[in-house]
């Protein structure tokens, strides 16, 4: 059997990490949201539609998963005599498949949500309008790219840590802070915030997919190059 697949299987030895916890988070967020929707309706809330950002909860977990799947399983995979390339491909492949399955699940649940009139409560958990107005493919890709992007951010940060340890972290976060602060200063001093927000709302889900996908691929490449020389 191919060693890349074996890496994916190794990551799945503890099923809880890749499958159990995301489902638990999603299920928990869903039940919690529904409870709130129900309470609001009971209290006489009469907004036409209620929105919840609860569906993004598992996505943030992927950021943590990106970090965790690297810092802990990478040193172990070296001991299993797996090359860095194989480890990388196996881990990203596994994540890609899980993200695709979960994205499809989001899409399907969104359809159910719309068909049941927001679970009979007029609530929106999965099918947020801005996304749900697009065709099925764009919807699935939207979730997929977002998950992938978060995972790759976590993954890349973790590879930087594995390769350069604390000094790498320091440089990375100082650089990140400098870029963010620089942007804020530029927008504030140039009084360009209005322009910025005007620009931000022109984004479509499709645009997010394209640009997010491009950034995710860039991060994937950066992660790989960083990992090539990382040590346990």
């Amino acid at each position: 059997m191919n060693r890349i697949i074996k890496v994916a299987r190794m990551q799945l030895i503890n099923k809880w990490t890749f499958i159990g916890i995301p489902l638990l988070i999603l299920g928990g967020a869903f039940i919690f949201t529904m409870a709130i929707f129900w309470l609001v309706r009971r209290a006489g809330g009469d907004e036409a539609v209620m929105y919840s950002g609860g569906a993004q909860a598992p996505m943030w977990y992927f950021l943590a998963l990106g970090i965790q799947s690297l810092t802990l399983t990478f040193p172990f995979s070296l001991a299993m005599s797996v090359s860095r390339r194989t480890f990388y491909l196996g881990t990203v492949l596994l994540f890609g498949i899980s993200a695709l399955l979960l994205s499809t699940f989001y899409y399907l649940m969104g359809l159910v949500e719309q068909a049941t009139g927001g679970w009979g409560l007029g609530g929106r958990f999965f099918a947020l309008e801005w996304v749900a107005d697009n065709n099925g493919f764009v919807q699935i890709m939207f979730y997929f790219v977002l998950m992938l992007l978060l995972f790759m951010i976590g993954f890349w940060i973790a590879t930087i840590y594995m390769r350069w340890r604390t000094s790498g972290m320091l440089v990375f976060f100082v650089a990140l802070a400098a870029i963010l602060l620089g942007t804020v200063f530029y927008l504030t001093l140039g009084e360009k915030w209005g322009q910025f927000w005007a620009w931000a709302i022109t984004w479509s889900a499709g645009g997010v997919v394209l640009w997010g996908g491009a950034v995710a691929i860039l991060m994937a490449g950066a992660s790989y190059l960083t990992l090539r020389k990382a040590t346990a």
Binding site: I13, N14, W16, L72, T73, F76, A79, S81
Partner: peptide, 14 residues
């Protein structure tokens, strides 16, 4: 080859 180092790290939940 097999090389388990003296301070080998294992996945946290293993």
């Amino acid at each position: 080859m097999c090389f388990i180092r003296e301070s080998q790290k294992y996945p946290d939940d293993f």
